[in-house]
Design a protein around this nucleic acid. Sequence first.
DNA 1: GTAGTTGCAAAAAATTTGCACGGAC
DNA 2: GTCCGTGCAAATTTTTTGCAACTAC
Lengths: 148, 148
Amino acid sequence: VSKKHAVELVNQLRRRGKRVTRERELLLRVIADNAHLDAEEIHRLARREHPQIGLATVYRTLNLLKELDLVTAVGLGEPHSHFELCAEDHIHLVCSTCGRVVDVPAPTAVRKVAEREGFCVHRVSAEISGTCRTCTSRQIKREKAGTT
Amino acid sequence: VSKKHAVELVNQLRRRGKRVTRERELLLRVIADNAHLDAEEIHRLARREHPQIGLATVYRTLNLLKELDLVTAVGLGEPHSHFELCAEDHIHLVCSTCGRVVDVPAPTAVRKVAEREGFCVHRVSAEISGTCRTCTSRQIKREKAGTT
DNA sequence: GTAGTTGCAAAAAATTTGCACGGAC
DNA sequence: GTCCGTGCAAATTTTTTGCAACTAC
């Protein structure tokens, strides 16, 4: 799943008549470099570069970027949202054992299904929860060893 | 997307060693009959039949049902979760204009993608946001009329 | 210069928890 | 009878908002 440059996104902001501030530029960079962080995590990373940035700014910026369709919120099974750039159609594979999230491109069939319904698609995101290869083989080893 | 009977689900509870209470049975029925409600909405509907049921019980039950993989939480772009029975693989088409959600079956290709990664799939849920047919044609009409 | 943004603190919304009572098994 | 589940109120966590100072344009 491809990487976007925060620079492009900053230009998007300007083109759409929104102001480009130090905070927005920074947050876009943090989100572009790290997929599916939650608001606290984004705040924590942003503080490394701009210690006095407030959590409220993070939320306000996330809401702005959502309106502009530059970022999207995903649930990932947690009671709070995680955020990522609106990338090409992709699927989140969420391992319910280790919690790791892997992104893979979504088959075009998914988008087709929506279009068949007369839907004008903005973005596609899927979530598959299950057990990843690593955790599955670990489980099997443990079973063989007799440890339940 | 098929309908499950709350009865089956209640049996699942018993089989898995969880107690079957009036509250759990009621909440399962509410969730089975109404896809993607949020916790407040579930609570409100449940109260029609059992006025003194508490919101905390709703949350506790939802968490239990999630652990048993009987229900699943979906984001739908809101800052709080919505809940639905774990049905067959399906896609939520969320109209960002009118907010309506339509469920359509997911192509098997989606699940295949995860299996190719060595993933042992528990459940599949996708979200496509966009503009539904109705809202799209309404917009076109408005454009023709000259109203921006 | 002006209007939009920010940080902080406070408020609101969403979710979880402690405890005493009640009900399922 | 025991242990789990419930309701209520309080606590925690997540997200939004009001306001004065600040800054992009």
